[in-house]
Design a protein around this nucleic acid. Structure first.
Lengths: 369, 369
DNA sequence: AATAGTTTTGGAAGCGCTATCACTTAGAGC
DNA sequence: GCTCTAAGTGATAGCGCTTCCAAAACTATT
């Protein structure tokens, strides 16, 4: 086996049935580096993984060989031999929902610093797909798994529990976590949004939502509970879509509510996409925000402070959630499995008051048509 | 080695220096399944990987053992032994920019069907980080790598070229691809946006952009080239930010242009985020869109059709781009490295005319302040 | 100068799986 | 009855790396 200067050689393999290995460039291995540096493979491994355990002269020599052969360690072989994959799996329900973007970005920031690779999977808001994703993920023996929500049940939960790896359920809270739990109480947040509007003087408060995930459901439940507690009727005030969230959907849902009632003075939107859509629908209909209709959103997405008027919303600290989830995992991994960390962390939420909410300016009258 | 019913046992390993392996649950291996089914490990491997090569009775027996032991094959070991990782690496410049979301989602849809896992990395619009990401990725021996843009140079390009794995440069076009190339011509798209506005009758056309990536730069170049070709001056009409794109930034950039000129009748925004921000800034200033100012965006994001007025924009077929990139890779992998596929595919772009653009309604006069 | 200690390096084994080839068995054909 | 084939199964040998322990090369002691 000879290697040319750039560190690979053309492998003239036979064309096998599977067709693989055809004219494939083969990369340098640890042994190649060892041969080049004139030492044994073990020593090269050590020089790379534990440079302090090796003499400076040798470190240099191995370093040179690594560079000249363009050697990149095979993580798969390393993982198999050491039983440490340095992989953390994250399963999100959607890749296109902005809510998970900054969460993922925050996780990656933390993991990257710790030299851990993030493996992302998409469950498309489906339990069956989540189960498949967990199973696939476990095949790569991740050091931990982060999932969204706390509603894993049946086989998904069993797989996660029995896998023996740290599991973080994120973005929601439960009394009965699989393992770690970082998030906030959606029911309370939904109720808080209602209370906020109530305190401003609103009594006829609508709610726009999507039925794609349990967390939206909890916000709805929080809305209903708060309205009930405050003695306010909710009939005809709620519009829910089974289709995925979007700005367009927000406009449609507001329209739907307005066909059933014309005296709402405020609307609580299950997320900022819907809120933006509702805001545009108001512009279209000549409904003044917040004068005719107050709007409160949820999540505080990138655009939410930049709309006209800027959107009052419930912030949910997604980057912080991701950071804390990842940090907890890194601590556990670093600690060799010891759990110094708190198991549950309620990140909380808070309402950012911006221009889209104000006390009701018209008496309980009708909206402009 | 004994296993309890649920398929793992407590490993009472010694507490070693690294702290790993402490009280760790160990998963069932191929040998465990083999023992349980009363066959050899090879046979179990075959029963799982090539069920048709094995008798139905045995298939059943192995299946039962797999189920009862909750066996999940170790992909790392499988990959190491078979030299096929079933991993495709994707490196995007940002996880939070909506532009890459649907691209990634489309890739995952295709790869998942082919039983391939997607490994995502984030280069944060930095060449240095991209280099690191490529290097890390190569450690996992992906079957292919997808990168954004065509501007990989120096060591990044060298690594990709020498890796010997199929590389797709996506979302931009080049005459000199590393390997495969799927995207569209940003220069042409930028010029087309200008031409579109010109054809509507606009002559004073501004441009809002960010200096975060070469593709925005090419759109800017296209804008400048088209303006030049049409004999239109551009002085004071361009605002560029070095900070990342956002809706807020769009408002700021429009304001910046408006401090330098007050007679533009149209503005071409480098992306829809900026366009939305510009739209809101117009609302804030009482500038009528499209009457006082026509706005054209870029990318056709989720919200773009739902704004008031709906945003005219240049669609860039990101899901299609992702799909084609992934399909090309799957074909190559399936074909065992044979390249039946076309090397370059120009997905193209087109302009969706919506309400935010119209012929200029006011004579070349000043905008309301 | 001999011994005990302290680095520094190497050998052997094996992580969990698959590719290859050799072997066993059952059925077909004469 | 026998050979001949096809189908099903197993033994062996790694993939590229790390862990553990032994050996070697030094350094510091007496």
């Amino acid at each position: 086996m000879s290697h040319c200067a750039v560190g690979w050689h053309i492998y003239e393999g036979s064309i096998d049935r599977l067709g693989a290995g055809l004219n494939k460039k083969v990369r340098a291995t640890l042994s190649d580096v060892a041969e080049r540096a004139g030492v044994s493979p073990v020593t090269v491994s050590r020089a790379i993984r534990h440079p302090e355990m090796v003499s400076p002269e040798l470190r240099q020599r191995v370093g040179d060989a690594v560079t000249s052969l363009h050697y990149i360690p095979n993580q798969l072989a390393s993982a198999l031999a050491s039983m440490r994959t340095n992989i953390v799996g994250v399963i999100v329900p959607s890749l296109t929902n902005g809510v998970f973007d900054d969460f993922l970005a925050a996780i990656q920031d933390v993991l990257e610093h710790a030299g851990i690779q993030m493996l992302v999977s998409n469950s498309r808001y489906s339990e069956a797909e989540e189960e498949k994703a967990v199973e696939t993920m476990l095949g790569y023996h991740p050091e931990a798994i982060i999932v969204i929500g706390v509603d894993q049940a049946g086989r998904v939960r069993q797989l996660l529990t029995e896998s023996g790896v740290p599991v973080v359920q994120a973005m929601d809270m439960t009394d009965d976590p699989i393992d770690l739990n970082v998030g906030f109480n959606h029911h309370a947040a939904g109720a808080a949004a209602v209370q906020f509007l109530y305190d401003l003087g609103h009594r006829r408060i609508g709610h726009l939502t999507v039925r794609t995930d349990p967390r939206s459901g909890r916000r709805l439940a929080g809305y209903l509970a708060a309205m009930g507690r405050l003695g306010l009727p909710t009939q005809g005030l709620v519009a829910a879509s089974t289709r995925p969230t979007s700005v367009q959907r927000g406009a449609e849902l507001l329209s739907e509510v307005l066909t059933q009632t014309d005296d709402i003075t405020a609307v609580f939107c299950c997320n900022d996409d819907l809120a933006l859509g509702a805001l545009f629908e108001c512009q279209r209909r000549g409904i003044k925000v917040p004068g005719d209709l107050a709007i409160i959103g949820f999540n505080d997405l990138d655009f939410s402070g930049a709309t006209v008027p800027p959107l009052t919303t419930v912030t949910t600290e997604r980057p912080l959630t991701g950071t804390r989830a990842a940090q907890a995992i890194v601590e556990i991994i670093r600690g060799g499995g010891r759990r110094a960390t708190q198991v549950s962390e309620d990140i909380g939420f808070h309402i950012i008051t911006r221009g889209s909410t104000a006390p009701p300016s018209r008496p309980a009258g009708k909206l402009p048509r």
